[in-house]
């Protein structure tokens, strides 16, 4: 008796007790004496759940939390509105603030501060990271100092910046710039350091200038680290913003929150917190989009491979 090497179409039609047959797409080995005691390999890797089930599982906890919030803050619940506003109240307040334009005015003021600070701090962090990562001289000259300064909690600089730059926009922007420069510096430096030395050698051999080397080889290779830095910087910029906007401001989400505190408006506070949360979420999405756009060579290889042929 012989074992067939694979399923043949005819064996599915005419059952052959010695042949492997395909049933419902799975290989079933008909009982043959010499195959007694054999069994199909058990799946070693967990199988993925259906997408719908995945989605339900993902939203289960957030929905439960909102329900709990709603239940706790209902009239006669355990939490009084002075402590935490009910979801319905928060929604109404949000609609009011959004409708009257108050929310947008304050949000745009905050966004502008964060963007300016991030742009300045990011540029500085990125340039210093490339410089110290790429040039030995830059590292020796700058890295020890930067590592030392990095350990200072940037929020501690707030009062000093107010003394230096007054109470206008400048201290706020500078604070955010300082806060964002370090995560970008550290991650860019690490990214540049991890660039494959052999690729650098090859590029040098083929006559790339130092500037071209940075632009064509070093920065692309450091991009993953750089974008991690950007992600951290975006988070830190929000932190700096909240701090900066609680002192001497007349506009911004932080101002909205501080003034709500004076009147125990927990609904406004919760709206502000949710705005911050949404902001963080969108910032993360932005970085992911950037990852996709800036590193096309990292996209699913199967597709490019098929496209190349």
């Amino acid at each position: 008796m012989t074992l067939t090497t694979g399923p043949s179409p005819s064996s599915a039609v005419v059952p052959d007790p010695t042949a492997a047959v395909v049933q419902d797409g799975s290989l079933v080995v008909a009982a043959a004496p010499e195959a007694a005691g054999l069994q199909p390999p058990t799946a070693v890797l967990p199988t993925a759940r259906p997408r719908l089930v995945q989605l339900v599982l993902r939203v289960l906890l957030p929905i439960a939390l909102v329900v709990l919030w709603w239940w706790a803050t209902r009239p006669g619940g355990w939490v009084r509105p002075q402590v935490l506003a009910a979801p319905g109240q928060v929604w109404t307040t949000f609609a009011d603030l959004a409708g009257s334009g108050v929310l947008w005015d304050n949000l745009s003021a905050s966004l502008q501060r964060a963007a300016t600070g991030l742009l300045i701090g990011g540029t500085i962090g990125l340039s210093l990271g490339v410089l110290t990562g790429f040039a030995k001289l830059g590292e020796e000259l700058l890295d020890p100092t930067l590592q030392m300064l990095r350990t200072i909690p940037f929020l501690a600089l707030g009062p000093l910046f107010i003394v230096w730059f007054g109470i206008g926009e400048t201290p706020k922007v500078v604070l955010i710039a300082v806060a964002t420069a370090f995560p970008l510096y550290l991650n860019t430096y690490a990214g540049v350091r991890s660039v494959d030395r052999r690729s650098l050698e090859a590029a040098r051999v083929f006559g790339l200038s130092r500037l071209a080397l940075v632009r064509r080889v070093v920065v692309p290779a450091a991009l993953p680290g750089l974008l991690v830095g950007l992600r951290v910087a975006l988070g830190v910029s929000l932190l700096g913003l909240i701090f900066a906007e609680q002192i001497n401001t007349t506009q911004g989400i932080g101002y909205l929150m501080t003034s709500a505190m004076a009147f125990f408006q927990t609904d406004v506070m919760v709206v502000c917190i949710l705005v911050y949360a949404l902001w963080g979420l969108l910032a993360d999405l932005l970085v992911r989009l950037l990852e996709h756009l800036l590193m096309p060579w990292r996209r699913t290889h199967a597709r490019t491979r098929a496209g190349a042929r």
Binding site: S199, A202, A212, P220
Partner: peptide, 24 residues
């Protein structure tokens, strides 16, 4: 003078044609 190394040493972030043109 040019070289081919033991490994291809292509620049990951540049397409094949760009790698051939490298430095030009």
């Amino acid at each position: 003078r040019t070289a081919v190394f033991q490994e291809p040493r292509l620049i990951e972030s540049t397409r094949v044609l760009g790698n051939v043109l490298l430095g030009q």
